[in-house]
């Protein structure tokens, strides 16, 4: 039982990290209907830039805000150079464009900072929490807990932002019907910059946490692929969906690996989430929390 709990909690905590990446997708998809394939590249770019600046001698307190500023510049550039000329193009066109963007951002990151793996120290040690280990006999990483806490705060802040603020409401309005949003004077370009900026911020947080855990390296871009089943499960348009989806994927892949793995020779973790997502797709195509497609007849 203790072992089960340990696996479950460990899985949930790593799931939150998936949620963080998925969140970036959800934000952009909600506001512009674009499936931003480049989100993984943005995670990589943000992490590499922060570490790069840190390695140059800047303290993390300086490097991280500076990286955020660079992410905002990136958002402005993407809106000006890529999105604006492509207004009103088909979704598939925009999707292709984000694939192009992926290679560009990955290339840019490596051109500036090199291709070597860098270590990132956030000052939180990846050791089991003593309190839990002593009293309950469960080994839970301190780092995972902090990461989960950060993710939680981020998500709560985003939820409030979307439902309570003027800009948040405008973002949802644009996501719903951008012609109507235009008609009441919401400037789409401004909204897009904000959304890509926020997605950049989320990418930065995710990049720092993932980077600190696995090292900042090109493999970070593959984290984005893990976000895919999370999105299918949670729905492409739902912030809570991204969170719950991440938790489910994280927990179930670890549980599957530990308890089913031995029977099939292990290695389940890699593909189990996709199978889960696929099954889910058959039952509930809009995802757990995805917005129901409203149709009045």
């Amino acid at each position: 039982m203790q072992f089960f709990l340990e696996v479950l909690l460990g899985g949930l905590l790593s799931g939150i990290m998936y949620s963080l990446v998925a969140l970036g997708f959800v934000l952009i998809y909600k506001a512009s209907g674009v499936f931003n394939f480049a989100q993984g590249a943005m995670v990589f770019f943000a992490a590499l830039t922060a570490v790069g600046l840190h390695d140059m001698g800047l303290s993390l307190w300086l490097a991280v805000p500076l990286t955020m500023a660079i992410m905002i510049v990136l958002a402005v550039a993407i809106e000006k150079i890529v999105l604006r000329p492509l207004v009103n193009q088909a979704e598939i066109t925009l999707f292709m464009v984000t694939i192009g963007l992926t290679f560009f951002i990955e290339g840019l990151a490596q051109a500036i900072w090199g291709a070597s793996v860098r270590k990132l120290e956030l000052g939180i040690e990846d050791v089991p929490l003593e309190f839990l280990l002593d009293n309950a006999g469960i080994a839970i990483s301190q780092f995972d807990l902090v990461a989960a806490g950060i993710a939680f705060v981020l998500v709560a802040a985003l939820a409030i932002f979307f439902s309570k603020t003027k800009v948040g409401r405008a973002l949802r309005a644009v996501a719903d019907d951008h012609q109507a949003a235009l008609s009441i004077g919401i400037p789409l370009q401004q909204i897009w910059v904000i959304v890509w900026g926020v997605a950049g911020f989320v990418a930065l947080v995710a990049g720092l946490l993932w980077g600190a855990r696995n090292g900042v390296q090109f493999a970070l871009t593959f984290v984005a692929l893990k976000a895919l089943p999370v999105l299918i499960l949670g729905g492409f348009t739902s912030v809570p969906g991204a969170i719950v989806g991440g938790l489910i994927i994280g927990a179930s892949e670890k549980l599957a690996e530990v308890f089913l793995g031995p029977y099939v020779g292990g290695g389940i973790e890699g593909w189990f989430p996709y199978v889960l997502a696929l099954l889910f797709l058959l039952v509930r195509p809009e995802g757990l929390f995805g917005e129901k497609i409203i149709r009045r007849i």
Binding site: K166, R169, D176, D177, A180, S183, I184, G185, I186
Partner: peptide, 26 residues
């Protein structure tokens, strides 16, 4: 000057009140 488009174009996933509030964006 504001246009109310043909076919109404409400924000379907926003509440009626949120729809109204977005109108004051500018």
């Amino acid at each position: 000057m504001v246009q109310v488009m043909e076919g109404r174009h409400c924000f379907g996933h926003l509440t009626v009140e949120e729809n109204l509030l977005t109108g004051a964006y500018t």
